[in-house]
């Protein structure tokens, strides 16, 4: 049993399901609000969760996002089955994107998503196997100063 773990919630995400895009991160936001997590932490975690969720919808086949709330941090683990990311460092660069034209048309594909996750989290870890899938894990810590 992990120490200080208060709550676990899982969300299923379907690739290319744009109708429900943003639902998981929206629910994560609601849960964090109900738990009285400091607003600045909620803001960061929600933005990072949204980028993560959109990447699964756009690039992967399907995935699961797990929200873990601890006393001192919010953690999101997003595992997907998909093409994977061949060069993570390259993908992390602002402006790098492999988004196809129809995705660009929808307003995505600026290549800012992963950078945005990094900016809004305290720890970010990306593991990927080409042709298998990707796992994005990030944490936003809850400091005393937030309270």
């Amino acid at each position: 049993m992990e120490e200080n773990l208060l709550l676990v919630e899982k969300f299923k995400i379907q690739g290319r399901d744009f109708d429900r895009a943003g639902e998981a991160s929206s629910q994560i936001k609601t849960i964090l609000k109900k738990l009285n997590i400091p607003p600045s932490v909620i803001r960061k975690a929600t933005i990072a969760a949204y980028e993560t969720e959109m990447n699964i919808i756009i690039y992967a086949y399907h995935g699961v996002m797990t929200l873990k709330v601890y006393k001192n941090k919010v953690k999101v683990i997003a595992e997907d089955k998909g093409p994977g990311i061949p060069d993570i460092n390259l993908a992390m660069q602002e402006g790098y994107s492999t988004a196809p034209p129809e995705i660009l048309e929808m307003g995505f594909g600026a290549g800012m998503g992963l950078a945005n996750i990094k900016k809004n989290s305290d720890i970010l870890e990306i593991k990927s196997n080409v042709n298998k899938g990707t796992t994005v894990t990030f944490e936003v810590s809850i400091n005393e100063q937030h309270k």
């Binding site: 208060l6 709550l7 849960i31 609000k33 109900k34 738990l35 009285n36 997590i37 607003p39 709330v69 006393k71």
Partner: peptide, 20 residues
């Protein structure tokens, strides 16, 4: 000032229990 009324309890641990 915020007048937060959406949370289940002031303290996270209690709020998480109520959510479960």
């Amino acid at each position: 000032k915020p007048r937060p009324q959406y949370f289940l309890a002031e303290d996270v641990t209690t709020a998480a229990k109520i959510m479960e």
